[in-house]
Amino acid sequence: MEKQQKQSPAMMLLRLLQGALIGLGAVLPGISGGVLCVIFGIYRPVMELLSDPKKHYKTHLPRLAPVFLGMGIGFLGVANLLAFFLERYPNQSVCLFVGLIGGMLPSLMKQAGEKGRSKGSWISLLVAFTVVLGLLVGLELFSVQVTPSVLWYLFCGFCLALSMIAPGMSFSTLLMPLGLYTPFVEGLGRLRPSVLVPGVLGAVVTIVLLAKAVDRLFERHYSIAFHAIVGVVSAATLVIIPFRDMASSFAALLSDLICLAVGVVLALALDRFNARFPKE
């Protein structure tokens, strides 16, 4: 046990960088912090620590502390930059994010089928896709206006934590259709207490209540759970595509398509890098 707790400076730096990338993945639309945990081979120890900290903190916390520190740095460091681009170039930014998500979908499907696919897997994907698409389209058709508030920021914290404990679930895909992503990210980047406090509280409560349940769900029903996540991500991504902006002019269509293509290329490049990254 003692040997597991000792880390060289190089290993601590590596874990700090991994944490920073995971933090970036948690806030960047189209990328999941949970997926990056899987890619870096630390998802299982992270989930074990979150689901039962009393049992695992002595063996897991020393080697994961640099990861958590890096996550905070990566998350807060990019929040202001994202808020700027979403405010100045909203449609182009969204198209870039849609391209990132679309480029990652093949990788997500591959991960979803790592333990086989059953009839239930495809049913879970279809049901999740239909339910989420119907919900988000219904909100748009009935012009449901979501005004940011403490309760909604608690919900944002829930989605953020869920994106960490459920691989493949990007919290931006749920918040963008509701119009909550930009104010939430901007509030976090500027450390506004009205956003930061309920967001952190929602994330902590979610981890305490759901980490163990999600860990067991993926352990016992990996394929069904992961295919459901693919369905949620696909439906939420489809809703945020700015079709109206694309149809407004040729210049808008061209710029949006270029951003979509750039997003796909970046996602595929990241996927190729991930395939070569050594797992723990």
Rank of each mutant, 00 (worst) to 15 (best):
L76H: 02
L133N: 05
T59C: 05
F273K: 10
F40R: 15
P66I: 11
A161H: 04
G25P: 03
G134T: 09
M176Y: 04
A203G: 10
V94S: 13
V94Q: 12
I123H: 03
P278W: 05
L180T: 09
L141C: 04
L21I: 03
L178P: 04
V144P: 13
F184R: 08
I39Y: 13
G102L: 06
A20V: 02
S93M: 15
P177V: 02
N91P: 06
K58G: 14
A236W: 09
I229H: 09
V131W: 09
S172N: 11
A275I: 10
L64A: 06
G34Q: 11
A275D: 12
I241K: 04
L266N: 03
P45M: 11
V146E: 00
L16T: 07
G231K: 12
V239T: 00
L105N: 06
G116Y: 00
R63N: 07
P9W: 15
L257Q: 07
S170V: 13
T147C: 13
S194D: 11
G30K: 09
I22W: 12
L191K: 09
L180D: 07
G30T: 07
V205D: 11
F273I: 08
L61S: 02
T182M: 13
F277C: 09
S194V: 05
I31H: 03
L81V: 15
L24Y: 03
S124W: 12
M246I: 15
R15C: 00
A247E: 06
S234A: 02
L82E: 04
L162T: 06
H221I: 10
M12V: 00
L257T: 08
V265G: 04
L188F: 14
I241Y: 06
Y181M: 07
G41M: 00
L254P: 13
L253G: 13
V131N: 07
S32C: 01
V146M: 01
L13T: 02
P177T: 01
W152N: 15
I258D: 12
F171A: 15
G74M: 11
G74N: 02
F226S: 08
L69T: 07
G70F: 00
V78S: 01
K3M: 10
T206E: 03
T173Y: 13
W152E: 06
F40K: 10
V27D: 04
G19S: 07
L108I: 05
L141V: 14
P9D: 14
V195A: 04
L16V: 05
A247P: 03
L268D: 04
F155G: 07
V127N: 11
S223V: 11
Q145D: 14
L154Q: 09
M12R: 01
K279Q: 00
L154H: 05
P183N: 09
G187D: 10
E48W: 12
G77E: 13
R117C: 10
G77M: 15
N91I: 12
A275N: 09
T206W: 00
F85G: 13
V98F: 10
K279W: 05
A10I: 01
M109H: 02
T147L: 15
R244N: 11
G113R: 01
I101E: 12
C37Y: 08
A20E: 08
